[in-house]
Computed example of a mutant assay.
Amino acid sequence: MIAGFCLSGAEARSDGQGSYVPCDNGLRCVMAPCPSNSALDLASGKIIKGVSVDIDSLPQQDKALDLSDKLYAGKVVVAGTIESRPHSFNGKRYSLPTLVATGIERAAKDSERGHCSAH
């Protein structure tokens, strides 16, 4: 069980946010941008590939949950929104999906981690 929840799923969706299970998907590449992370959108079932997770907007109690390993392995359901943000790699600009996390909703179920390499 994960303590320190910020938003319930219902509260997140009423604010125009969604629920996502982000994780490492096992893909590796030699050149950026590398789509090694993905996020499952629980509402649509769609997998967003190449997503990075921005945890800057999380409440402090959620940041204290040792998130690095949990996000890598898809162990948490994250409330937030997917934004297209500019990133530069090797002098080229790319617009990449970013999951702007605003809360940790709950532990992810095994069935929600199917797109993860480390489930």
Results as ranks from 00 to 15, higher is better:
Val30Arg: 15
Asp56Tyr: 14
Cys6Ile: 14
Ala79Tyr: 05
Val77Ile: 10
Gln61Val: 10
Tyr20Asp: 05
Cys6Tyr: 10
Lys75Leu: 06
Pro59Cys: 12
Ile104Cys: 05
Glu112Arg: 02
Leu96Asn: 04
Lys63Pro: 00
Gly114Ser: 12
Ala39Thr: 00
Glu83Gly: 11
Asp41Ser: 01
Ala73Lys: 14
Asp15Gln: 15
Arg113Cys: 02
Gly80Met: 02
Leu67Cys: 05
Met1Ser: 12
Phe89Trp: 09
Cys116Val: 02
Ala10Gly: 09
Cys23Glu: 03
Gln60Arg: 13
Ser88Ile: 07
Arg93Gln: 14
Ala79Cys: 15
Val30Trp: 15
Ile55Ser: 07
Gly45Gln: 09
Lys92His: 09
Val21Arg: 00
Ser95Arg: 13
Asp41Cys: 05
Leu42Glu: 03
Leu96Ile: 07
Ala108Trp: 02
Asp54Ala: 01
His87Asn: 07
Arg13Ile: 06
Lys49Glu: 05
Ala10Val: 10
Val30Cys: 15
Lys75Ser: 07
Thr98Glu: 02
Arg113Trp: 02
Pro35Lys: 10
Arg93Thr: 14
Lys75Tyr: 03
Lys46Val: 06
Pro59Trp: 01
Ser88Lys: 13
Gln17Arg: 15
Ser44Tyr: 06
Met31Val: 15
Pro22Gln: 00
Arg85Glu: 05
Ile48Leu: 10
Gly91Ser: 09
Val100Trp: 00
Gly45Pro: 08
Asn25Ala: 08
Ala10Thr: 07
Lys46Ser: 08
Ser84Met: 15
His87Ala: 10
Ser68Lys: 14
Phe89Glu: 02
Leu65Ile: 06
Gly26His: 09
Ser44Arg: 07
Gly114Arg: 06
Arg93Glu: 15
Leu71His: 02
Leu58Phe: 08
Ser52Leu: 09
Val76Glu: 02
His115Lys: 11
Met1Leu: 12
Ser68His: 13
Ala118Lys: 13
Pro33Ala: 05
Ser84Ala: 15
Gly45Ser: 09
Lys46Trp: 02
Lys75Pro: 05
Gly80Asn: 03
Ser57Tyr: 13
Arg106Thr: 04
Ala32Glu: 11
Ala64Arg: 11
Leu42Val: 07
Ser44Cys: 07
Gly16Ala: 12
Ser36Ala: 14
His119Arg: 11
Val21Ser: 01
Lys46Gln: 11
Ser57Gln: 15
Lys49Cys: 03
Ala108Lys: 04
Pro59Phe: 05
Gly74Phe: 01
Ala39Asp: 02
Ala43Ser: 09
Tyr20Arg: 02
Asn25Tyr: 04
Leu42Trp: 01
Ser95Thr: 12
Cys116Asp: 00
Lys109Gln: 11
Gly9Ala: 14
Lys70Phe: 02
Gly103Ala: 09
Ala118Val: 08
Ala10Cys: 06
Arg28Leu: 12
Met1Gly: 12
Asp56Pro: 08
Asp69Ile: 11
Asp62Pro: 01
Arg85Asn: 06
Asp56Ala: 14
Ser8Ile: 04
Leu99Asp: 03
Pro97Met: 08
Ser84Phe: 14
Ser44Trp: 03
Val76Leu: 13
Gln60Lys: 13
Ala108Phe: 05
Arg93Asp: 14
Ala107Asn: 11
Ala73Ser: 13
Arg106Phe: 04
Leu65Thr: 03
Gly91Phe: 07
Phe89Gln: 06
Val77His: 03
Glu83Gln: 15
Asp54Lys: 06
Thr98Ser: 05
Asp69Leu: 13
Leu7Tyr: 01
Pro22Glu: 03
Val78Trp: 00
Asp15Tyr: 14
Pro97Phe: 00
